[in-house]
Design a protein around this nucleic acid. Structure first.
Lengths: 148, 148
DNA sequence: ATTCGTGCAAACCCTTTGCAAAGAG
DNA sequence: CTCTTTGCAAAGGGTTTGCACGAAT
């Protein structure tokens, strides 16, 4: 089984397969976001792409992530009111969202079962079901009684 | 059964019950957002509160909605990357989100069943499960074959 | 007098856009 | 040469903040 890390050329082919012209910047961004399961904001992708050096501009990161999402290479996660997260396209799964830390955590796929998904309103087509379980730091359920 | 519309005094009491000091502006905002099931952005609340006249400032609307949400009077819905929606606290239910129109539609409560909700990561407490079914205008499923 | 709420405008953050220059075929 | 992509900076839209004024206790 070829578990070797993907080369730049592999990524370039990945892009072309999805109808995205391959360029240096796009391959760099693809390497960052597609290399492993993770959730990154555009800002984080920007940092990771330009560690030290200066390869890709902010606008290009935003535009490229949007393009990748359109082309089905990555998925947008809307969980934080302040920013969008991106993750590689993988099998359907959902997320915990820690409102204290702004951190996103995968929920084991297949663990959640959703039944009775209703028909969408007339004249519309479903494109996806997103489940976000909001969590908060601390083990104490909502209203803890003060210890005195 | 007293289905009479709530008076300003009723709203004032509602606020106090939740630990929110009652003021003219807050009661006006409560009337707008709490009077019926609906999904309004802060912008929309601002418009509705100030129909014609000029009663509440933008900052106060934003701050007050945030306060209401904290105090459990209303619920934030994170579905649109661009803005937060607010709805009155009602029985648990979920939403369709039309990505073309930016419109939010209730899903009949009880229609969706979610099984296997996992334990949150150690050291965290669940505060809510949000399900958003993204939909798109048009009946044609994703890849329609051109008719020739 | 002290506390709390409001209004206004400016600040902020994330994201998108306009346009000229660079690159690919 | 023509089409696409990039970069930069500026604009944009939603939201928050700082501070002085006003209301309530």
């Amino acid at each position: 089984m070829n578990k070797r890390p993907l080369t730049m050329t592999d990524f370039a082919n990945l892009l072309r397969d999805k109808g995205v012209n391959s360029t240096l910047q796009r391959v760099e961004i693809a390497q960052v976001i597609l290399s492993k399961p993770q959730h990154l904001s555009a800002e984080q992708v920007l940092e990771k792409v330009n560690k030290g050096r200066n390869i890709v501009s902010k606008a290009t990161v935003y535009n490229t992530l949007r393009l990748f999402a359109q082309k089905g290479l990555i998925k947008e996660i809307i969980a934080d009111p302040a920013k969008v997260f991106y993750e590689p396209m993988t099998t359907d799964h959902h997320h915990f969202y820690n409102v204290d830390t702004g951190e996103l955590v995968d929920i084991d796929p297949g663990q959640i079962k959703i039944d009775g998904v209703p028909e969408p309103p007339d004249g519309s087509t479903p494109i996806g079901v997103d489940v976000v379980i909001r969590i908060r730091d601390g083990n104490i359920p909502k209203n803890s009684a003060p210890s005195a």
